[in-house]
C-alpha cells in the first residue's frame, strides 16, 4: 500500500509541477535554454501573419518565424505597464521599419492574470499592434517564475530550441538603446543584421 501511495505522490507531483509554490519555475535566466511556452493560436489574422505560425490549436515560441522573440509580461492592472506601453509600441515600430530587423525580431505580450476582455482592453487602449495573449489563470506567469510586471524576456530561436539572452524587470529606458542592446546581446548582427 505504501508503494501505491508513493506512486500517487509521484503522479500528483508531476501533475501540479508548474503550479505549486514548490513547483513554480524560476524566472528565465540569460544563457539558459528557454522552457517552451504553449500559446493559443492567434485569433486575429494579422497576428497569425505577423508570427508566421502554422495553423493549429497552439504553438511554441520556437515556432514563431523569427530569429529573436521579445516577450513582455504585462497586466492591464499594472500602472508601470500602462506607462511603458507607448515605449513598447515605439520598439515595435522601430523594428518593423528597420529593413534588417523586420521579420527577424518579433514581440509578443503575455497578459498575466488578465481575461481575454481585459487583455483586449489593454491592446485597444494603447493601440498595441503585436499579439497579447491573455493568461487569466496565471498558468504562463507561473511558468515564467511569477515575475513582476512589466518584465521583458529576450529569446533567440535556434532551430528546435530557444535560448534566453535577456531577462529583466522594469522599464527599459531609451527605446533605441534598448533595441541596440537586444541586437547586441542576441548576436543576430553576426547573421547579417546591422546594429
Amino acid at each position: 500500500m505504501i508503494r501505491f501511495f508513493k506512486i500517487a505522490l509521484l503522479i500528483a507531483s508531476v501533475a501540479i509541477f508548474p503550479f505549486t509554490e514548490v513547483g513554480i519555475a524560476n524566472p528565465p535566466e540569460a544563457g539558459e535554454v528557454f522552457r517552451q511556452l504553449k500559446l493559443p493560436f492567434p485569433e486575429k489574422k494579422e497576428h497569425r501573419q505577423y508570427l508566421g505560425v502554422k495553423k493549429g490549436e497552439s504553438f511554441l515560441i520556437r515556432d514563431i518565424e523569427a530569429d529573436v522573440v521579445i516577450v513582455e509580461v504585462l497586466s492591464m492592472y499594472c500602472p508601470f505597464c500602462q506607462v511603458e506601453a507607448p515605449k513598447v509600441n515605439e520598439l515595435f515600430s522601430m523594428i518593423q521599419s528597420d529593413g534588417n530587423l523586420n521579420g527577424k525580431v518579433k514581440i509578443i505580450g503575455i497578459a498575466a492574470g488578465n481575461s481575454r476582455y481585459e487583455a483586449e482592453v489593454f491592446t485597444q487602449k494603447y493601440a498595441v499592434q503585436f499579439p497579447v495573449f491573455p493568461d487569466a489563470d496565471f498558468t504562463i506567469h507561473k511558468m515564467l517564475g511569477e515575475v513582476r510586471t512589466p518584465y521583458f524576456i529576450g529569446i533567440k530561436n535556434e532551430g528546435k530550441k530557444s535560448r534566453v539572452f535577456y531577462s529583466k524587470l522594469g522599464a527599459f529606458g531609451d527605446t533605441g538603446d534598448f533595441l541596440k542592446q537586444l541586437i547586441s546581446m542576441s548576436e543576430i548582427e553576426n547573421q547579417g543584421v546591422s546594429k
Binding site: 500517487a8 505522490l9 503522479i11 500528483a12 503550479f19 505549486t20 499594472c78 511569477e146 513582476r148 510586471t149
Partner: peptide, 25 residues
C-alpha cells in the same frame, strides 16, 4: 492510487500562492 493522486492535485490548486500585486510599481 489514481484517486489519491487526483485528490492531491485538486487540493494543491487551493494552496497556490497569490500572484496578484505583481506590478513593479
Amino acid at each position: 492510487c489514481f484517486s489519491v493522486a487526483a485528490a492531491m492535485t485538486v487540493a494543491s490548486c487551493f494552496v497556490v500562492s497569490s500572484v496578484y500585486g505583481l506590478s513593479a510599481a
